[in-house]
Design a binder for these strands. Structure first.
Lengths: 261, 261
DNA sequence: CAGGAATGTTGATCTGGATTAAGATTTGAC
DNA sequence: GTCAAATCTTAATCCAGATCAACATTCCTG
């Protein structure tokens, strides 16, 4: 690689992603921001609320200082206190099984809610860790329940959020129980694409916030297989990969891979 | 097999299960029963409610006539109206993917709640079918929400039920993404054991309400593999299998299989 | 209760992805 | 800027479970 294109990929000719909008730019790590003025309020809990209701929600939201990469929001078996919403950055959740195996159970992007697995048992079933510098809103659950009792819209919306999580988990169940490595990966990338699109980032060009090992642990595949699949999809011209940079070149073909046989 | 032991398994010497308490006996298909007098009211929604609250819940519960084996409660893509609680019998839920693959997403025993996957999108993501003659309570969701608004205990409990579903689905995610066929099967059997125990049936001796194909589609395995694993576990003396009859002979060893490496 | 369909079992073979191994590249700390 | 650790890639081999095939058993239905 010559010094002239030191930041671009000479094989794919990809322009470095730094030049485009990023997660960071969209959501500055500004702890002072209120729900009413948050850019995510069309995605997050406020979506169903009117102004006075948003104000009440605002009063129970704790805006802690940003988490650094590798920081934990909470750990498996901690007492359940709060659910969390990603304001900027990204989070992974993972479980350590009895046998010591580590499995990633989810990735969370801005606007997405973390910690609902602890609601029933009052103990978190997962650990959750920041994948990069991230701002998080904390919502003490007891207060959220109390407020839901007063605001039918909030209760309704929170039921919907939990229902959505259940439907999503069932889709993953299907994915893991019968899809090939390539199909799982295509599905994972298309899922990220949709989620980035929702927060007004490019749905075809994004930076993976997680390492290959994490993706593998999420999809039930080894790192080596992840690497091979990325290479294969690139060779077929469906994606361009440069390290953590991903470009989806042929979304229809990716959908076709998932639908196959 | 001689005519003398026509109903027992000459290899395992198992006494036929018909002689023990069954699902049917526990929960007669009596449509007249109220939540207050239902044997499941320590498991189901009433658990958190006082007498007057149970009465209000009772008023919104529809007790349809029993479903015959193979009947659908609802089908994938139907408009979401209600959640359902199994009173007696058993239900499976399944998804048909774009590619035509059928995957079982869950099994539901008495006291368990069905249909929460439709809450967010207002469309059921699964089809649900009775595995045997089953009685089901239907709870129109709009009315359940309205009542939850009035009864904090009910709201709290329903949040807990949904949280439990989320935690359970994540466990399955872990199971499917890294466990062997034998580990998945052991985990499945121990899970059933716990659930039968909860409804006061034997946790070590029960009748599988589903066929091998269904178990395989749930665990991401083929029928042939299911059959081989059952045979292997039987040979090791951990279980006794006679068609749909299962006896868990060594629960600790089954736990050990799951924990291994 | 007879006969066909559905379900379950067992064996032989094949294969996708794991495992093992060895480098290459990137990242982060000093 | 340098160096060690972390991450990623590629290749060779292996194996758990899929697939293919044949048959046994159980369940329905008339």
């Amino acid at each position: 690689m010559s010094s002239a294109d030191i930041t671009s990929n000479s094989q794919t000719g990809m322009i470095p992603l730094q030049a485009t909008a990023t997660n960071r730019e969209l959501c500055p790590h500004n702890a002072k921001i209120s729900c009413a003025s948050c850019r995510l309020n069309k995605l997050c809990l406020p979506i169903a609320l009117d102004n006075s209701e948003i104000h009440q929600l605002d009063n129970i939201v704790k805006r802690n200082r940003p988490y650094k990469k590798g920081d934990h929001l909470y750990r498996q078996d901690d007492a359940f206190e709060s659910v969390y919403v990603v304001r900027s950055g990204s989070i992974k959740s993972y479980i350590l099984s009895d046998s010591g195996k580590r499995r990633v159970t989810g990735f969370f992007l801005p606007g997405e809610i973390i910690g609902m697995d602890g609601i029933a048992s009052k103990i978190y079933a997962n650990s959750t860790m920041a994948l990069e510098h991230s701002s998080i809103c904390e919502i003490p659950f007891t207060q959220l329940e109390r407020l839901s009792q007063q605001l039918p819209n909030l209760q309704h919306h929170f039921f919907a959020i939990m229902g959505n999580e259940i439907a999503k988990d069932q889709k993953i169940h299907t994915l893991l129980s019968s899809y090939t490595a390539e199909q799982r990966t295509a599905s994972f990338l298309l899922g990220l694409s949709t989620r980035y699109g929702r927060i007004s980032l490019s749905p075809t060009r994004f930076l993976l916030p997680m390492i290959r090992i994490d993706i593998g642990e999420y999809l039930g595949l080894t790192v080596e297989t992840m690497s091979r699949v990325f290479t294969a999809l690139q060779r077929k011209g469906l994606i361009a990969v440069n390290n953590r940079e991903i470009e989806l070149l042929d979304i229809e073909a990716l959908r076709g891979i998932i639908a196959a046989s």
